[in-house]
Amino acid sequence: MKRTLPISKRGLNFETIMWFFTRLSALAMYGFIIIGMIGALVMGARMNMNFADVMRWAFMSNSTHVQSTNIPDIAPWANAFWRLVASGFLLVASAHGVHGLVVIADDYLVKPLQRNVVRLLSIVMLVSIGLIGLYVIWTA
């Protein structure tokens, strides 16, 4: 008889879900970066960009990041698809990073009040980063 526990009996709480999210979001970031790099190559990175420009675009596909390159026409690249890619990367990366900070803080703070304060501040930081980032991506 195969021993398998249903999801309700595994202690699936915030810690476990975020542990899983951290792994998945790391993989997702690799995916976003590969999409960005392929996009940069299609854009003409091989002849018209240096390494720093490629990285800027791969990590955040915002047209203002590659304004100073030799790409003849950047305007078509400021479309909804690339803005969605940039938004996706921003939200996944900030959630991944802020949760990393919470994990480190939890190592040293053992009192529930201290942990809750740090978590509240982290949520405020996450929401702020997200809103500012999305504003920049969609208005640039």
């Binding site: 595994r10 202690g11 699936l12 709480n13 810690e15 476990t16 975020m18 542990w19 994990v103 939890d106 190592d107 053992v110 942990r115």
Partner: peptide, 9 residues
């Protein structure tokens, strides 16, 4: 194990 002071640490 799934508590805050558990395996996530």
């Amino acid at each position: 194990l799934s508590e805050t002071s558990g395996i996530a640490r």
